[in-house]
Amino acid sequence: MSTTAIATDLGLKPAATAATASRSVSSVEVTDYDNRQTVGKIVVDNAKMICRGVNVYYGEKQAIKNVSLDIGANEVIAFIGPSGCGKSTFLRCLNRMNDTITTCRVTGQIKLDDDDVYDKSIDVVQLRARVGMVFQKPNPFPKSIYENVAYGPRIHGMVNTKAELDDLVRDSLERAGLIKEVEKRLNEPGTSLSGGQQQRLCIARAIAVHPEVILMDEPCSALDPIATAKIEELIDELRENYTIVIVTHSMQQAARVSQRTAYFHLGDLIEIGETDQIFTNPKHKLTEDYITGRFG
């Protein structure tokens, strides 16, 4: 069985193919486990964000080691890797959510279009309006559904009238595929929704401020398969207008929603490339081991 078949089967039983995968060693270019040079093309033509030589330290401990990659405009890029590999940490660097952790230190360069994200002149408020975020656990504000979505536009002063705000809220809920379910109950608390609906509410809340990039930190890990399918569908639709970076534990999900995939391992970016290629023809032994279910 080739790794092509593995990817096809990925949705069903990735672990079952582990034994067979070890036979296809020949297709891997880097067999040395200790070689932590990034394999694959990190550069894209229409880059939305450019990261070069990013290091992240929590106190003495280095969580991200010299990571460079581009995030293309209107693409979905998935960060995968075993727990503790630094994919979430790296994601949080992109909109400086790590700033809230006092011991956290970031070096290197991250650019959003032409602006250096970590430049002194950039205000995090502006940055986070441009780079929105959806978290692992749905975290709607304990306010009404309407207020949840209206919050961002309100604090950023995006609308002038109540009618404009109403339109924006409805539009955001519609784009998040939630409008039909909540149309009649906009004034009920956001926390009264189901988990999947709450997560879509959080997505609606994020897109209400018209960000350029949306970061998603394992957005489906707390959801059931049906709710997950809805979110994945939504991500695919949102790609038209936004650049999406998604961290996921589920390789199937990465395979389904992303165009490019980056594999992190213990703080190193091991391999990056087209999603098809990563899953069918990984170039690094570590990547192959991970996607074939050897560990992770």
Binding site: M97, T100, R128, K137, P140, F141, I155
Partner: peptide, 11 residues
């Protein structure tokens, strides 16, 4: 999570 949500919105 509430703090993160607010900060993530750019508050």
């Amino acid at each position: 999570s509430i703090r993160e949500a607010a900060l993530g919105m750019g508050a």
